[in-house]
């Protein structure tokens, strides 16, 4: 008995601290919900505007995540497996959009799309590049593709290379090996990363602020809409949308934990 109990304070402290963090977050959510009140919760949650915005957020984030995956999976695989010149330089450059603020991404996108040939395109074809939902997708994609590649590299790094070697010696082409051996093994990691990437895309707004500007009903995804309504003094909208965002995040993370299972990418 005495043996077992010795040093028991350390796990207790750790668990206690976890509990404290949890408590802080629960308090944050609860106090805001109390501030909103039950009557207003029902009112705002029954508004179609709320769900239109949620849908806009969901589909833009989904599309940009898919685009990121198309590039991110092969790129992550390449960085994880193949040796090619300037590999480390590539890896560092790909980390950039994760480290720098999304505002920088927005400003840079703004810079590039107002130069040749884009200015010529927008003048002749009567479109404002970047002022619509494609701008939103572009910002989300630019921010998340790096993130995605990074996470994919981590997923592939965890898979032992032996299986690939076996597959190759048995005569499968690298292409076939990738799809038949590597991808199925990396499945959990990929799905877990996908959800993280999706959440990152759905939370993007600094880049949007600089590059896109808000058009209501067209480019105001949830985080941007919260900012807009904060400026309009509509605290009811701000609070209720924050709650929806939080619920969205909690479901995304839970989904990741359930699907990703044993994967320790995150």
């Amino acid at each position: 008995m005495g043996q077992k109990r010795r040093g028991g304070w350390w796990p207790a402290l750790c668990i206690g601290l976890t509990g404290t963090i949890l408590l802080i977050y629960v308090l944050l959510a609860a106090s805001n919900w109390i501030y909103l009140g039950w009557h207003d919760t029902l009112y705002f949650f029954s508004k179609s505007r709320m769900w239109e915005r949620l849908w806009l957020t969901v589909w833009t984030a989904t599309v940009s995540t898919c685009l990121s995956l198309v590039i991110g999976i092969p790129a992550g695989y390449a960085l994880s497996r193949f040796k090619f010149p300037c590999r480390y330089l590539f890896a560092s450059i790909i980390d950039l959009p994760i480290v720098v603020s999304p505002a920088v991404v927005g400003a840079f996108l703004f810079g590039i799309t107002t130069r040749f040939p884009f200015d010529w395109v927008s003048e002749h074809y009567d479109i404002y590049i970047g002022r619509n939902v494609y701008g939103v997708l572009l910002v989300q994609f630019t921010v998340t593709v790096a993130f995605c590649t990074r996470l994919m590299k981590a997923s592939f790094d965890m898979i032992p290379t032996r299986f690939e070697a076996v597959s190759n010696t048995l005569g499968a082409s690298p292409f076939r090996t990738f799809f038949k051996v590597v991808l199925p093994m990396a499945k959990n990691g990929i799905i877990a990363s996908m959800i993280v990437v999706w959440a990152r895309a759905a939370a993007e707004w600094e880049g949007l602020m600089l590059f896109v500007g808000a058009t209501e009903g067209k480019t105001d995804i949830m985080p941007f809409a919260i900012y807009l309504d904060w400026n309009g003094g509509m605290m009811g909208w701000v609070t209720s949308m924050s709650i929806v965002c939080m619920l969205m995040a909690v479901s995304a993370i839970s989904a990741m934990k359930i699907i990703g299972g044993k994967s320790n990418v995150w």
């Binding site: 810079g111 107002t114 602020m209 600089l210 896109v212 808000a214 058009t215 807009l228």
Partner: peptide, 20 residues
């Protein structure tokens, strides 16, 4: 009509650069 709502301070940079 599409709005590009921003803080007034942002506009000059935007318009100067984008000419849109």
């Amino acid at each position: 009509v599409n709005f590009s709502y921003k803080g007034s301070g942002y506009f000059i940079a935007d318009i100067t650069r984008s000419k849109q």
